[in-house]
């Protein structure tokens, strides 16, 4: 009987620590949004400002450039053309909207201008550019490419509709993927 009484608090502590572990793991693991169909697989992973800062700090980016990235939400995109046709990426045609309004993707040219204003060394500009998703690309069969897209930082959820033209002449059946309830990832401060 005594032994049982002693065990009770230990069991509670054990249950609480498991609960905490699961909660922390859920915070640490980035949310992945995946849409897969026979012709394409697309993955979206929201990145927190700290994750992005850590990445660019690791590449020796100056603080002024890292501060500039904090004004944007980063999403890492992975696209895999699983079809036997060309699939055309044109992110400028994607639609992003929240309940309140339409959201514009931050264009790659915006970042270029930003870096110019900050007089950022060319090598950092180049690295940053390669971490972005190309705005336009013809995906060959089985090709996988990825990179980040950026939008102005915001709190609410939004939807993203990604349109892809298909076929060498872009006249094949278009592929439309709809991602719902995307959110900017937040750091746990």
């Amino acid at each position: 009987m005594k032994i049982r009484k002693l065990h009770k608090p230990i069991i509670y502590l054990f249950a609480i620590s498991i609960g905490l572990f699961i909660y922390e793991a859920s915070l640490a693991a980035p949310t992945r949004h995946v849409i897969k169909n026979p012709s394409i697989k697309m993955v979206i992973i929201p990145r927190t400002a700290e994750q992005m800062a850590a990445f660019y700090e690791g590449r020796e980016f100056p603080a002024k450039a890292i501060d500039a990235t904090r004004s944007a939400c980063f999403f890492t995109i992975g696209i895999h053309n699983k079809s036997k046709n060309i699939i055309w990426l044109n992110s400028l045609q994607w639609q992003l909207s929240s309940k309140a309004s339409k959201i514009e993707l931050i264009r790659n040219t915006h970042w270029k201008q930003q870096w110019k204003k900050l007089n950022l060394a060319q090598r950092f500009q180049s690295t940053f550019r390669w971490t972005l998703l190309p705005e336009q690309l013809d995906f060959h069969p089985d090709e996988r490419e990825g990179g980040n897209i950026t939008i102005p930082r915001q709190d609410g959820s939004f939807n993203l509709t990604a349109h892809f033209l298909t076929g060498t002449d872009k006249k094949g059946k278009p592929v439309v993927l709809e991602f719902k309830n995307l959110r900017c990832a937040k750091d746990n401060n």
């Binding site: 060394a121 550019r129 490419e145």
Partner: peptide
């Protein structure tokens, strides 16, 4: 390619 400009001239699809 210290400044990345030579790479740009080759116009890679990605790295």
């Amino acid at each position: 390619d210290r400044d990345g400009l030579a790479t740009e001239r080759w116009r890679p699809r990605g790295l």
